[in-house]
Computed example of a mutant assay.
Amino acid sequence: MFDEICPSEVVPFRIGDKWAGMIIRCLEHGPRRFSELRIPLRTITAKVLTQSLRTLERDGLILRHVHTTPVQRVEYDLTPLGRSILEPLAAMCAWTEDHWDELLDAREA
């Protein structure tokens, strides 16, 4: 899913926007800072990542934590609502993997 050769736009399921599902998967194992999210999501621009994070926060799927001591830093984490989408998202990823060739053939046709 995070590999450059994986054309994630082929995946027919989107939660919010093109990047939302990938961001949710990145937060699956705990909070991450903005710069930490940019590593697996290396092809996303900072502007689009910011927009996607704001949308996910607005929709109640992630929380933005601002830590002010000793230096200000921001972390993003899944809410219980966001965690509840992990299982359906895993099922969608498994389905896509099972039907990858068919999806690519359909796109090329």
Rank of each mutant, 00 (worst) to 15 (best):
L27D: 01
A94F: 07
A90H: 12
A91P: 00
G60R: 07
H29I: 06
W95F: 12
T96H: 02
D3H: 02
P12S: 14
G82C: 01
D3E: 08
R83L: 13
L81W: 00
R38P: 13
M92E: 06
Q72E: 14
Q72H: 02
E108R: 15
S52P: 06
R54S: 15
E9L: 15
R54G: 10
T45K: 04
P40I: 09
L104P: 03
H67G: 09
R14P: 04
P12E: 07
L86S: 07
A46I: 02
D59W: 00
L103G: 03
R14N: 12
D59T: 10
I85E: 00
M1G: 15
A20N: 00
E36T: 04
L56A: 01
E87D: 14
T96M: 01
F13K: 04
L89T: 01
T45N: 07
P40M: 06
T68F: 03
E108K: 11
E28C: 03
V10F: 09
D101M: 06
E36L: 08
V10I: 13
H29F: 15
S52F: 05
I39N: 11
L89I: 06
S8D: 09
S52V: 06
T79G: 10
P31F: 07
L37K: 06
T96G: 04
L61D: 08
G16Q: 08
L63S: 13
E75H: 10
G30C: 06
L61W: 09
R42S: 11
A94K: 10
D105P: 07
D59P: 05
A91G: 02
S52N: 12
V48R: 09
A91M: 11
G21R: 08
E4V: 06
R38L: 12
E4T: 13
L61M: 15
L89E: 06
C6I: 15
P31L: 07
P88M: 01
T96F: 03
V71K: 04
R38I: 12
P88E: 02
E9S: 04
V66E: 08
T55F: 07
H65T: 11
Q51W: 01
D17G: 07
T79E: 00
L27E: 11
R54L: 09
H65R: 10
E28A: 11
T50R: 06
T79A: 04
W100L: 10
L37P: 02
P12R: 03
D17T: 10
G16I: 13
R25H: 01
D105S: 12
L86H: 10
D77M: 08
P40H: 04
M92A: 14
D59N: 14
T55N: 00
